[in-house]
Design a protein around this nucleic acid. Structure first.
Lengths: 213, 213
DNA sequence: AAATAAAGAAAACAATGATTTTCCAAATTT
DNA sequence: AAATTTGGAAAATCATTGTTTTCTTTATTT
């Protein structure tokens, strides 16, 4: 090998303040913050650049257009927010505890401020930017899958009565999403943590009352 | 009494093409169409005026600003779409039939193209225009009420096992809203009518399996 | 020091959009 | 016919925005 390695020898001229990747990350973070706060259309490029501490010149050197910024910023956030559901939470020995863990994990995730804002943005822009809707779809598919897997397993081992797996999982997941929907649409305030715990317990109790064998 | 009545005697001058109320209605209809199709911000005043067949001059004589147009147009549509749930549908003698009627009525309503678009718009603009969110809240409160009333009544008469009424009603309504949410977010296509009927039957069957006494 | 590249500041550009104003062609009454 | 009102067409205003360009300062290497 020759020498060309880690630190590429620079020619003359001022070195970059930071690597391009760092600058990109700063911009993406600022963009995500602004988009989630104010919405895509209402957010100006200048605001993003100012918040990121760069000039629009730099911004446009790294991103082709505002819409690319939206895609990249949101994809990162969607993965971070919805990719994190720990499926292992639903595998405790005691079925009730395991369901509580699963539902409580998803509840924490789905009712977080971040997830509510993200989902609101998908509702508003998903039609216009199909790539966004697609990211969201992929990220949430894992969650649907986790619920169906839980139901199927507990139908198989006799804890739940047998029946339409998909519909039962839907019923279960629907309780959380219904809460998210109400927050999203301004029909109710966000849950306080304590309230959230009670709510999970109540929902699990009701579901098991109905569907435990 | 003197004479001043129905048809106020006009002075000289060209008479209006239509009454102000008719013109208002034309504009509101065009605005609602456009807002539901394209979203509030993306819809230009010129488009609305053109679709309504009036000039912007006329439009601004009758509406103070674009936002008033949004409020008035959406309030009318929200009332029309969500105010129409016939609570009487849930009062048949046979409890299963009565639940099917209630759920099917709400499903037709909530999964209609109109309701999905309306809800999407509330998600996008409800924060910025609180009056809108408020209309939506009021219109949908009746529906929540209808579900709770059904559950309460059938808990009382022994058809359903007793329990947390609100949570049970939530579970029930949640199934429909979850479907709406999936359409809204582009997670699935709209239901075909036949599919919708099957879906209601399945949901009712599952719910009653679980909660009938 | 001279040459050079990075990147902010700010202006320039072009488009769009909400709102207002001007001008004008009907349609009526007196 | 004269006076008068309605409301469309279109231009004018004024602000905002996405995007590009110019200018300038600064931190480097040779």
């Amino acid at each position: 090998m020759v020498d060309s390695n880690q630190v590429p020898t620079r020619g003359p001229g001022r070195p970059p303040l930071r690597s391009e990747d760092e600058t990109r990350a700063l911009i993406i973070a600022a963009a995500a913050r602004a988009f989630l706060e104010t919405g895509y259309i209402r957010t100006g490029i200048d605001t993003i650049a100012r918040d990121a501490g760069v000039s629009t010149r730099t911004l446009y050197r790294l991103f082709a257009a505002k819409e690319d910024l939206l895609k990249q910023a949101m994809e990162a956030r969607i993965d971070a927010a919805f990719g994190s559901l720990d499926a292992a939470r639903g595998t405790k020995a005691d079925p009730r505890a395991s369901l509580e863990a699963l539902l409580s994990g998803y509840t924490d995730l789905a009712l977080s401020d971040e997830a509510v804002r993200l989902t609101r943005l998908i509702a508003a822009e998903g039609q216009q930017v199909p790539a966004l809707a697609e990211s969201y779809r992929q990220a949430t598919a894992r969650i649907t899958g986790a619920f169906e897997a839980w139901v199927r397993e507990h139908q198989r081992n006799g804890f739940l009565r047998p029946g339409n797996t998909e519909t039962a999982a839907n019923l279960l997941r629907g309780t959380v999403n219904e809460a998210q929907r109400q927050i999203l649409l301004g029909l109710r305030d966000a849950f306080a943590p304590a309230e959230r715990r009670d709510w999970v317990k109540t929902s699990v109790a009701l579901f098991l009352d109905g569907f435990a064998a």
